[in-house]
């Protein structure tokens, strides 16, 4: 189980890296081809589609590595015990939010199936919306791990080296 999750994490970061390189390439190619008079109009749409994936999957990676920005000055002053419980409350609220995020994300992905990318005929907008429930699911796993970590004070995550 743990092994499988590690593979998923690795796959996730690999995917975002590839997407990022594609975004740079697509935007670069869009400008160059337009400059020489043969514009490729779908490349920018493709880039913003990948941008959504980078944002939400990247959010999960940042969360897993404790790189999400937060305000600490108040809870830093609290004793360890209270601090731990407040963090637990936070993660439970986040968990509920993420579950709604997944549920309504699936609903929206279903309704956007007719909506096309203006610039890419035949390419459904669902390819963008589906990034939310998928990344949401990964974030739920991350959150549950954080909750377990706080409950049992033990590890069980895969981090970037």
């Amino acid at each position: 189980m743990k092994k499988l999750y590690e593979y998923i994490c690795k796959g996730e970061t690999f995917l975002i890296k590839v997407f990022l390189v594609f975004i740079v390439g697509l935007v670069f190619v869009a400008a160059v081809t337009r400059y020489i008079g043969y514009p490729i109009n779908w490349s920018v749409d493709m880039a913003v589609c990948l941008f959504a994936w980078c944002t939400f999957l990247g959010g999960d990676v940042a969360m897993r590595n404790n790189k999400l920005m937060n305000v600490e000055f108040l809870i830093k002053k609290l004793p360890e015990k209270y601090r731990n419980s407040i963090e637990l409350i936070n993660f439970f609220i986040i968990l509920i939010f993420l579950l709604a995020f997944i549920g309504y994300g699936i609903k929206l992905s279903y309704t956007t199936r007719f909506r096309q990318f203006q610039g890419i005929p035949g390419f459904s907008y669902t390819w963008v919306t589906i990034s939310v429930p998928i990344a949401g699911t990964l974030m739920v796993i991350t959150t549950i791990n954080k909750i377990r970590e706080r409950l049992a004070k033990r590890g069980g995550e895969c981090r970037l080296q």
């Binding site: 890296k17 990022l20 944002t55 999957l57 959010g59």
Partner: peptide
């Protein structure tokens, strides 16, 4: 290059999640 990509995706994730 791979390390740069690694830094970058974490930056993007943490910043863009706030904006988004």
């Amino acid at each position: 290059f791979k390390r740069t990509l690694e830094f970058t995706i974490v930056d993007i994730g943490s910043i863009m999640l706030i904006i988004s």
